[in-house]
Amino acid sequence: MKKLLLSLSLCFTAVLAAQEVTLKPYDAEAYTVVNSEGNVNSIIKNPVYTYLIDNYKAISEKEILPPNGGGDCGFTQTFQNGIIYTKRNCGDAALATGEVLTIANPNRESVLLWVESVNKVFGDYGQNHWNFDLTEYRPTDNLLGGFFTINRDIDYTTILVMSGC
């Protein structure tokens, strides 16, 4: 019986991994305010987490990341459609701070459109541009704004979102 359940579980996981996940559109206007000078100000602290809460069902509780000697280091939480969110506040690693979204087998085009729309929360004034292989979307000339890095693996894609504001 255990072998049957294990086999069914592995088959179910393989089917989920084979299905392409298309990210739901990000409505930047719902999370921003335009002030009297025409500048865009984000009204949320963690735009990616807010997007997930608004658009996907959480299938796990928040799991606190172990502290690295200095208090809160963040948390991780799993959502439907093979999406894992991590908020990092650590100060000791390359992915030390920011929001990390891990998606099982995402639709590439939906990821690129999603990144461009999330960037509007950081005040997109046309300063962000893609690099040659579409793995980084960042301001040119060291301007302030959103910084995005996309790392693709065989079965999943990781998007690191950081604010340079």
Score class of each variant (00 low, 15 high):
50 T>E: 15
37 E>K: 13
10 L>R: 13
6 L>A: 14
25 P>W: 00
49 Y>F: 13
40 V>T: 15
39 N>E: 14
20 E>K: 09
3 K>I: 00
5 L>G: 03
51 Y>S: 04
11 C>N: 01
50 T>H: 11
40 V>M: 10
44 I>V: 15
12 F>P: 00
6 L>T: 12
35 N>G: 03
7 S>G: 01
24 K>A: 09
34 V>G: 02
14 A>T: 13
39 N>H: 11
50 T>G: 10
26 Y>I: 02
53 I>A: 11
14 A>C: 13
13 T>F: 14
57 K>F: 01
14 A>H: 10
59 I>F: 07
18 A>P: 03
53 I>E: 12
48 V>Y: 06
42 S>Q: 03
38 G>A: 07
5 L>V: 10
33 V>H: 15
13 T>L: 15
32 T>V: 14
56 Y>K: 11
39 N>L: 10
23 L>F: 07
9 S>Q: 02
10 L>C: 12
37 E>M: 09
39 N>V: 05
29 E>D: 14
28 A>Q: 04
5 L>A: 11
9 S>E: 02
10 L>K: 15
29 E>F: 03
22 T>F: 02
57 K>D: 14
47 P>M: 04
45 K>C: 06
3 K>V: 03
42 S>C: 04
43 I>N: 15
18 A>D: 04
19 Q>T: 00
58 A>Y: 03
14 A>V: 10
26 Y>G: 05
41 N>Y: 13
10 L>W: 06
55 N>H: 05
40 V>A: 12
22 T>W: 02
2 K>N: 12
18 A>Y: 12
39 N>D: 14
50 T>F: 07
21 V>G: 06
41 N>F: 06
33 V>W: 14
32 T>R: 09
12 F>W: 11
8 L>W: 01
13 T>W: 12
29 E>S: 11
9 S>D: 05
8 L>V: 08
17 A>L: 05
5 L>K: 15
33 V>R: 15
17 A>M: 10
31 Y>D: 11
36 S>N: 13
44 I>S: 01
30 A>D: 10
48 V>E: 11
52 L>D: 07
37 E>F: 09
38 G>S: 04
26 Y>L: 05
48 V>F: 04
40 V>R: 14
16 L>P: 03
54 D>A: 09
56 Y>R: 10
11 C>G: 02
15 V>T: 08
56 Y>Q: 10
33 V>P: 08
10 L>A: 15
35 N>L: 05
58 A>E: 10
24 K>L: 12
24 K>W: 03
52 L>Y: 05
53 I>H: 05
26 Y>M: 05
25 P>G: 01
12 F>T: 11
20 E>S: 12
47 P>W: 04
22 T>C: 04
18 A>I: 08
9 S>I: 00
17 A>Q: 08
44 I>Y: 06
44 I>D: 04
28 A>S: 15
8 L>G: 15
9 S>H: 03
20 E>A: 09
31 Y>M: 12
56 Y>M: 08
3 K>T: 01
34 V>S: 07
32 T>G: 13
54 D>Y: 07
18 A>N: 11
35 N>T: 06
4 L>V: 13
48 V>M: 15
40 V>W: 06
54 D>R: 06
24 K>H: 07
36 S>L: 14
44 I>N: 09
47 P>I: 02
46 N>T: 07
49 Y>G: 11
29 E>W: 01
54 D>N: 14
14 A>N: 02
49 Y>R: 06
14 A>D: 04
44 I>E: 09
9 S>N: 01
30 A>Y: 07
37 E>N: 09
